[in-house]
Design a protein around this nucleic acid. Sequence first.
DNA 1: TAGATTGTTAATCGATTAACAATC
DNA 2: TAGATTGTTAATCGATTAACAATC
Lengths: 212, 212
Amino acid sequence: MKRPLTISSAVIKRLPRYRRFLRDLLRDGADRVSSARLGELTGYTPSQIRQDFNNFGGFGQQGYGYNVRDLYDSITAILGLDAERHMVIVGAGNLGRALAHFPWEQRDGVVVDGIFDNSPDAIGQNIGGFTVGDIDGLRAILKKLPQDVGVIATNRQGAQEACAVLVEGGVKGIWNFTTADLLLPDGVPAQNVHLNDSLHELLYRIAGGEQA
Amino acid sequence: MKRPLTISSAVIKRLPRYRRFLRDLLRDGADRVSSARLGELTGYTPSQIRQDFNNFGGFGQQGYGYNVRDLYDSITAILGLDAERHMVIVGAGNLGRALAHFPWEQRDGVVVDGIFDNSPDAIGQNIGGFTVGDIDGLRAILKKLPQDVGVIATNRQGAQEACAVLVEGGVKGIWNFTTADLLLPDGVPAQNVHLNDSLHELLYRIAGGEQA
DNA sequence: TAGATTGTTAATCGATTAACAATC
DNA sequence: TAGATTGTTAATCGATTAACAATC
C-alpha cells in the first residue's frame, strides 16, 4: 500500500464513512463488495470510490471487487486506527465532559488519559472516572505518557494557552472545539470543530428553504 | 440583497467565519474594511472574499471597501440569525447536556426550549434549568411552540425515531450528531456533525506527518 | 472462455485565483 | 482629479464523473 505525498482532504473526509459501512458489511458476514454496491450504501459514485481507493494504490481485483476485511483493515491503518491512540482533554466544561464520556476506546482504540482545567471549581471533580486535574497535572501526564491528541474544550480565551501547554508536552495533533485560530508549529495539525458554524449553516439552509 | 437560487456549500461554510471577524472589528470600532484586510484576518484571498459577497449581490463600494456594520448585519440576515430561532434537543446523554448548556441564546438568539429522552433514567433529571421530558413531552412542545431545529443527540439506534417525531412535529431542520443516515422528507435539511469522523481525519493527518 | 469489475485515462464540472475595467 | 478598491470576467486549478482497456 503506497502512501502518496498528499491526499486531498476531500478524499480523507470520505474514508471514515467507507469504514463505517464496511464494518456493517463485515458484521453481516459479507466477503466482498463492489464499488457499485458501496456506492449504493454510501451515496458516492462508484467512479469516485475507485478513484479514492486508488489514491492508496488500489485494494481491489478486477472482476471480483474488494475484499471487505482487507479494505476495512487498510482504511483502518490509513486512518491511524490500527494502534492505540492517546488523548487528553483540556477544559472540563460540559463539552469536555461529554468528550471524556464518549466510548472512544471501545470503538476505535482511542484512550482518554485525563481531563484538565484551570478553574478551581472544576479541579478535583470526578468526571467519568477521572479526577479533573490542574495545568501542572496536565504537564505531568504529558511527560509520563506520550499523547497523540490534545483536545481543547476550553473557552475561546483559554484556547491558545492550553494549546501551548499541549504542544510543549509533545502532542502530535490538536482537536480544537473553540473558535480561536490557534498558533501552531509546523507539523502539528489542528482539526477544528466549530459547532456554532455548523448550526449557522443549518439555519441558512432552513432560511433558504423558506424564501425559495 | 438578491438571494440566488443556489449558493455553493463552500461559500456558506465561510460566512460564519466572516461574521466572527466582522464582530471583532465592530467591537474594535472599525467602520470599514477592505477585502484585503478581511483576507489577512480570515486567511481567505481577497478575490475569494469579493466573489463570495457577490453571490448575494455585493455589499461594497469601489474605492471604499465594505461598511463593517452593514456587512455584519447582512451576513447575520443571510444566516437566518436576525430573528429568534428555537431548538429542542433529543437525547439527554453527555452530548445532549453539553448542547443544552451552550450559551446559544446569548450569542446568536437561538433559544433551547427543552431536552428530551426515552430512557426512564434520564427523564425527570434536571439539566441546565430544564427537566428532561419524555417523547410525549417532546410532541407536546412541538405542538405548543414551533421549532426551527431539532437536535439529535441520541445513540445511533434511536436517531431515526427521534427524527420522525421531530419532523412530524414540524421542525424545519435537523442537527444530527449521530452516525445514522437519516431519512428525511424533501425540504427538511439535515446538518450532520460526525465527531468520530473528525477525530479520524485528525489521526490520519498525525499518522501522515509521521511517515512523510 | 465469458462476464464482471477494477484501475486508469480522458472529459466535465465547479471552485478558486488573477486581472482589470468600472466607479466611488 | 488621483487613488483605492470593488464588481466581474477570464484563466487556472482541482475534484468529480465518464469511459474503457486491462485482467481476474
